[in-house]
Design a protein around this nucleic acid. Structure first.
Lengths: 254, 254
DNA sequence: TAGATTGTTAATCGATTAACAATC
DNA sequence: TAGATTGTTAATCGATTAACAATC
């Protein structure tokens, strides 16, 4: 169904200078627009679904519908990657899929550690969507020794102090923090010191990191709050009022 | 530490016309800019932390630091809500906190159902950050009868067919979907038919809903993919390549 | 050739940033 | 009064949208 192509290779029909391009960002190279980058994973998912349904070619409008965006956006986004379509025809599903994956960096494996194996960490450790996209969860770490030894998705939960060893041994560059808020900054400091340069933070806390380290934050309750705002504007006061800020509510766990 | 104020009431010192404002959006009222709205929950969290630390007043710069944004952004964002600061002094932490909560709609309770109690649904059902912000999880629904009866966070898992009854009885307007991708659209259709008008979708699928229904999507692997892109641009090829699109990978669970 | 669809251009829109007058 | 800080204004930047020439 989907052909394999050589990772990092030039696409057929697209010539590069001959010398392999330096993957390190060249000065003045701004990379993809953030808004475009954020939609590429969505296109990738939609293309996978189209491929699974046996579709081999699709137009920008078809991909847009499957992705929940507009055709103009799809064309503009894809134009940042190169010219991978055919006028009058559309895009080859598996070819475009490969090009997007390569652009994002999913044609290589990324070793990932998950720190904090509570409810959410447990779910993340079991999430199949990571592995299928080239994210290889190589260790589950938790400071609480009561959790050590538990097996989740084929991995045992290990002491947080194993961090440095795991990072060095497995070449880990990406970490997921799913600890309580109070622990997040300390964990981040240790991760950075160990050599991690990208952090996905599920802990409900802002963490500070040095330049050169990327942090992205996912907040489960933020999205619900945004929905509440719009909901409030739709309906006239659905439920009785309540107070806010009832003093200390203790630390939250991610 | 934090005073309670009458929900929906006017803040002291700010006069309204006397007649209560119609909470329904008036024509031409565009509401808050989306970018501002997305940051309000972050400010709320930072203000809660400041209040817990005993801070009663803070400047826009202090709030910015605690929120991980710039002072200019804070001032611009807050200016959309009204004039709640004092020049030369700053903002009263608990007063600003109340005003933001009221603006978002967190001074009232919102009944929420969670559909799909797998790994992620389990974590969401246990997440304390929902309740503390006025989101009242009133039912956990799952189509799989093997899961029925399990108790999570004080609630039993119930049949999905209980949906309509729960929505009517509890006045549910917001739902969380944490089912496998294949079930998401069907679940969304049932939710909408039952009267739900806001959906937070954790299933890795795009769902279509009628006008007037809001959907927000959280994709755990999208964020990791965005990190991978930036990581790829930092380092020269950390790990060996792999193929992409290894044929059908089956349906994923949220 | 005629119809379809891409990739690009230009116009519009919204978000960010910097600066500073207003004012506590 | 002098110092501090807000709230607003104007400039800049990036994202979206619509239109269409290029071209399969």
């Amino acid at each position: 169904m989907t052909q394999r192509r050589a990772p990092q290779g030039d696409p057929p029909g697209v010539t590069s200078g001959g010398a392999p391009p330096d993957p390190t960002a060249t000065p003045g190279d701004k990379g993809l627009p953030e808004a475009t980058l954020a939609r590429l994973p969505v296109y990738l998912r939609a293309l996978a679904a189209l491929a699974d349904a046996g579709t081999t070619t699709c137009s920008s409008e078809a991909l847009a519908t499957a992705s929940g965006v507009t055709g103009a956006k799809v064309r503009k986004d894809l134009s940042h990657l190169g010219s991978y379509g055919t006028r009058g025809v559309g895009y080859d599903v598996s070819y475009l899929r490969y090009q997007i994956a390569r652009e994002i960096g999913l044609t290589q494996d990324w070793a990932v550690v998950v720190v904090g194996i509570g409810n959410l960490g447990h779910a993340l450790a079991n999430y199949s969507g990571f592995r299928s996209r080239g994210f290889d969860v190589v260790a589950l770490l938790d400071a609480d020794h009561e959790r050590h030894g538990e097996e989740i998705g084929g991995l045992r939960v290990r002491p947080f102090d194993d961090l440095e060893g795991v990072v060095a041994e497995k070449g880990v560059t990406i970490a997921v923090i799913a600890t309580p808020a109070a622990a997040a900054q300390q964990v981040a400091d240790r991760l950075v010191a160990a050599g991690v340069t990208s952090i996905l933070n599920f802990a409900p806390a802002v963490i500070a990191v040095p330049d050169g380290v990327d942090v992205r934050k996912v907040d489960l309750s933020t999205e619900l709050q945004i929905l509440a705002y719009h909901e409030q504007r739709k309906a006239p006061s659905p439920r009785a009022g309540r107070g806010v800020g009832t003093g200390s509510r203790g630390e939250e766990s991610a």
